[in-house]
């Protein structure tokens, strides 16, 4: 018998004795679970219903997380901000991927560009000053950016360079985590990318005396340009 069959056999034998449901005081109680699908939204931190409230919530979260969030009326303004950041920080080389938002913005920078949606050299990516990506969604509730290997140029682009810049459209800003997971399921049902990540603020650690330090192993800076 394989280990798989042995383990499954032990599990099935163990489960032949039922366990009481959580919160039941009668050990013989039938297994009736109380929660429903829409409950989670009602337990998690509240988020306003209007688009304005979502933007403000995302902004407040970004400040607490020490991420930079900029909200613009037009795509051109977002592009101008990216150029401003690049100039101020003295970027020499950036990495990105092909995309509706990234193509124009990266071209406008006029810098050497490494693409990670085609075979690339990791050392070259490590030497880039910034990784510029698109995303699947922004989550107002937590200030989270959702990326996948398909939407954001693979696994390393959004974590290896010291500065991660996200370009997003305002329609991508969803209310809360349940809405974000529903969206991922809707977009990728049956064919998920091999990697999906919820990014909430720049990389951080508190491992030394519980004192917050940014840029532990991932990006020290996270900038979100939304229009």
């Amino acid at each position: 018998m394989s280990e798989r069959e042995k383990i499954l056999g032990r599990i099935r034998e163990a489960l032949s004795v039922p366990a009481p449901v959580p919160g039941s005081h009668d050990h013989q109680a039938p297994p009736v679970l109380q929660h429903r699908d829409d409950d989670v939204t009602r337990w998690l931190p509240a988020v306003g219903d209007t688009p304005e409230e979502r933007v403000e919530r995302f902004r407040a979260n970004a400040i607490e997380l020490r991420a930079d969030f900029h909200f613009f009326d037009t795509r051109e303004e977002a592009g101008a901000k990216l150029l401003e950041i690049a100039t101020a920080a003295g970027w020499k080389k950036v990495a990105s991927h092909r995309g509706d938002l990234t193509d124009g913005a990266c071209a406008a920078l006029g810098l050497p560009l490494l693409r990670t949606d085609e075979p690339y050299d990791v050392h070259a990516l490590e030497a880039c000053d910034a990784g510029i990506t698109e995303c699947d969604a922004l989550v107002a509730q937590t200030g989270t950016v959702i990326v996948t290997s398909r939407s954001a140029g693979g696994r390393a682009l959004s974590v290896l360079p010291p500065h991660h810049v996200v370009l997003a459209r305002r329609e991508q800003l969803v209310r809360d985590l349940p809405a974000a997971f529903a969206l991922l399921k809707e977009n990728y049902a049956g064919n998920f990318p091999s990697f999906m990540s919820l990014i909430t603020g720049p990389s951080r650690t508190g491992d030394i005396e519980r004192i917050l330090v940014l840029g532990a192993h991932g990006p020290k800076k996270l900038t979100i340009l939304c229009f």
């Binding site: 979260n61 937590t142 985590l177 998920f192 990540s197 909430t200 720049p202």
Partner: peptide, 10 residues
Amino acid sequence: AITCYNSLYG
């Protein structure tokens, strides 16, 4: 509120 990176690998 949520950890910095929550990543799914399939």
